[in-house]
Simulated assay, not measured.
Amino acid sequence: MTTTIVTVGGRMAAEGLAMLENAGVECISTGPYPTKPEVMALIDKHQPEALVVRLVELVDRDMLAASRSLRIVAKHGVGTNDIDVAAAKELGIPVIMATGANAHSVAEHALGLILALTKDFRRQDGHIRNGLWDKKLYAGRELRGQKLGLVGFGLIGQILARMAASIGMRVSAYDPFAPDEAFAGGVTRAASLDGLLAESDVVSLHCPLTEGTRGLIGKREIALMKPSAFLINTARGEVIDEPALILALQVGRIAGAGLDSFAEEPPQASPLWKLPNVLLTPHVAGVTEDARRAVSIMTSANVLAFLRGETLAQNLYAKV
């Protein structure tokens, strides 16, 4: 009997698909952001042993229960907020992630946003395109000596900390769950989120989306930041109260923001689109060609190993 895997939200990279197909697995895929009826129909028809989750609003209980053969759900990445992990646990279906596969890509993207904002690239590019050559309008500054505050200090935060330290930034991180041994290379542990926000020249978010982090950065928290500070988000859009951020940017309460994720994706038209002190990217920090290949290979390898009854690393499993 053929083993079948359904990918929800777009095909995996060719290298990952090849691993599965060479193992005799039939691979079926929806397009990006499919509707629930589309997903339900595909699962009902093919009764897959595994679901791979890419670009989708939510894989809910109905989808999880639609295949009587389902044994594993694999996130093509690390954030599992688009999977009803609690329902999966109740149904006895483990959820795994591709932990670490795209961490370097996300850290580089965050650094790119920091550099672009600090060096005033967007405004300067606009001036040139509009025929304006006036160096007095340049508002760039050096990162050397500036303080980078990281909210969340897992693998992505740790990689970014090393990058930032190498160009002379002082780095502090707030993460009540990070072990003490993670704080090395001159990174200081912030005693509180409020203190980190008040002291940092750049705040970069690297925490997962949980009920504890939803709306973590709101009106009160933004008010604690320096007026000259930048806010970077390559985590999940819901970690920030978007209306509060928009207002703060409109009135100059903070200097700017670099956003790769949004509360609604794909997002509807927003006042953010018109703000000159904002850089926007469409949730692509972790999907460079290199990262997408690495995530697909890790996801395929983990799914195959699980279906063969092999033991996987404990930190690959999502927790409720």
Rank of each mutant, 00 (worst) to 15 (best):
S300H: 02
A244E: 14
V73T: 10
V295F: 08
Q314K: 14
S29H: 03
V239L: 02
T118E: 15
L247V: 15
D175I: 08
V202I: 08
T281V: 03
G256N: 08
S296R: 03
V187P: 04
P243L: 10
L196A: 10
G24M: 10
L70Y: 12
L137Y: 01
D260Q: 08
F262P: 06
L249S: 09
G252M: 10
P32S: 00
R162K: 11
A301M: 09
V56E: 09
I167P: 03
S270E: 14
V187I: 08
I222G: 10
P227K: 12
T99A: 13
D82H: 12
K136Y: 00
L91G: 14
I254F: 14
V202P: 04
G92V: 06
C207A: 15
S166M: 05
A86S: 15
V187C: 05
S67N: 08
R54F: 00
P282A: 03
H283M: 13
T299A: 14
S300L: 04
L91M: 15
F230D: 07
T234S: 12
V151K: 04
P267M: 06
A66N: 10
E38T: 14
I297H: 07
K45F: 10
P266A: 08
G309D: 05
I167A: 07
I43D: 01
E221Y: 07
G168V: 01
L155R: 15
Y174I: 06
L58I: 13
G195T: 13
P271S: 12
S192Y: 05
Q47N: 07
E15I: 01
I114K: 00
M19I: 08
V320T: 11
A229L: 05
H109V: 00
F153C: 07
A14I: 03
G157A: 03
M40I: 13
Q47S: 05
G92F: 11
T35C: 14
V25D: 11
M225L: 09
L55G: 04
P282C: 02
G157P: 06
E49K: 01
N277W: 06
V151D: 03
A116V: 02
S105V: 11
I240N: 04
V171W: 00
A65K: 13
T99W: 06
D120P: 00
T311P: 04
V278S: 05
A263M: 11
R123F: 01
